[in-house]
Simulated assay, not measured.
Amino acid sequence: MTGGGLILVVEDSEEDTEAIQRALSRSHPLLDLEFAPRSEDVLPRLLDPAARTPDLVLLDLNMPGIGGLALLSSLRAHTACASLTVVVFTSSTASAEEDACYAAGADSYIYKPVNFELFQTVLRGAVDFWLPRAADSTVTAAPPAAPPA
């Protein structure tokens, strides 16, 4: 998918933010990216009725203050955020953290590769997989019309 959409990236590392920006600007140039370096700012931003709802949230786990897992649990507890597609994109390879993220409602858990080419490939694959699904889940189809009586 090379079309538009909005991804909210919750990431405190400037290095990872830059890598995500570079990778997605190459593979998805029409995509809008919004970066949130602090978890504390994410829920108020998502609950703001004037703000554009992201099609996908990329969430880092290891954040200062409120960690990614706590933020994920908070998102799933709010009705307005419960259906957001949240992909945990982290450097943590701990299976216990992965299990905890899925239990808290993550749609996917993806390890951030160190190699930039692999990082770009993994990120492109995640966006190509999840962005169309997020768009489909926000579209409510009208029920089929009843046949004339």
Rank of each mutant, 00 (worst) to 15 (best):
123 L>T: 04
44 P>C: 13
126 A>N: 08
85 T>R: 12
34 E>P: 01
144 P>D: 11
62 N>C: 08
14 E>H: 14
37 P>T: 11
110 I>K: 00
39 S>E: 04
141 A>I: 12
133 R>I: 12
118 L>D: 09
18 E>C: 04
61 L>N: 00
49 P>D: 11
96 A>M: 09
138 T>Q: 15
84 L>I: 08
67 G>H: 00
70 A>Q: 12
89 F>C: 00
7 I>N: 09
26 R>F: 10
120 Q>R: 12
113 P>S: 07
49 P>T: 11
99 D>R: 11
121 T>W: 11
49 P>F: 10
94 A>E: 14
61 L>A: 02
143 P>A: 08
32 D>T: 14
56 L>Q: 03
12 D>F: 06
131 L>K: 04
120 Q>L: 03
3 G>R: 15
22 R>P: 03
116 F>M: 06
42 V>T: 03
25 S>N: 11
121 T>G: 09
109 Y>G: 04
30 L>Q: 14
58 L>F: 06
92 S>K: 01
59 L>G: 02
2 T>L: 07
56 L>E: 01
36 A>Q: 04
73 S>P: 00
23 A>E: 11
136 D>S: 15
59 L>R: 05
80 A>F: 03
141 A>P: 02
97 E>L: 07
54 P>F: 13
133 R>D: 01
114 V>Y: 14
101 C>F: 01
62 N>F: 05
137 S>P: 01
147 P>W: 13
74 S>R: 06
18 E>S: 12
72 L>N: 03
121 T>S: 13
90 T>Y: 07
19 A>V: 01
2 T>N: 13
8 L>I: 05
85 T>W: 03
14 E>G: 10
28 H>R: 10
23 A>S: 15
